[in-house]
Amino acid sequence: MVALVTGAARSYGRAIALTLARQRPVVLLDAPAPYTSLAYPLSTDDDLRSVADEIVANGGDALALPTDVRDLRAVQAAVDRAHAAFGAITTLVVCAGVVSAAQVARMTRAEWDEVLDTNLTGAFHVTRAVVPEMVAAGSGRVVFVTGPEARRGFASLSHVAAASWALIGMAKTVALEVAPSGVSVNMVCASPPDSLPLTSLPELQTAVGATGPQVGAPPWEQIAAVYPQGRPFVEPQEVAAAVEFLLTDSAASWTGGVIDISMGTAARNSA
């Protein structure tokens, strides 16, 4: 058993990598390459390596490979290195994603392209590089982790929503194509784990609905008011636990599905 986790430098990807590493070697990828349209501090290669160091310090096996998922050849090279280090990848968890905030009327081409290329095409690259080998082996588990933007519209996040909805369409299609092989493909749509993009992107605070009577309160209270459960953030460990379940024998029949970890906003989904 070998897991490959993209977006593993922090947030959900980090928690998932740390959790999966308790039972199998984990290969960690993240996308440190330069972006022109992102207004928050990106994770660094050092962030990625420190996750790998933590795994190794806990007695696990880990390989940190700073990789830009927007580059298929770089992804393929990383998968080859992973294979050489630990053998065939049996679990793929795609978490790599970036965010910016702009209304359609003001969105730049760079904002559109960088989100689509990372969040959607990057996921396709990793899928192409990893899943065919799983199909040939007759087993494997794939989980795409995305946000609540995959389930509804979000003002100022039309590019993120487009990429996230497209990711679900892609994942469901791959799920159907590989279903006979025994490989499963599922999605986890999780609300944000922390306030990093929110505090860096004021337009995003408006987008999540953090306005109205709560204005003036600390941002986390504004954010908490958006969710039926009244708390602001999903714990990364909750997402890691869902992914871990999808890798168990008990989840053998789970494929093509979407799990919402939403602090109650899923109750507003039409299905």
Partner: peptide, 18 residues
């Protein structure tokens, strides 16, 4: 399928903005 799902996410977001 990815492109056509994406159109719906884009449309719903723009609908909220506009």
């Amino acid at each position: 399928a990815a492109a056509k799902w994406g159109v719906i996410g884009l449309v719903k977001s723009a609908a909220l903005e506009l």
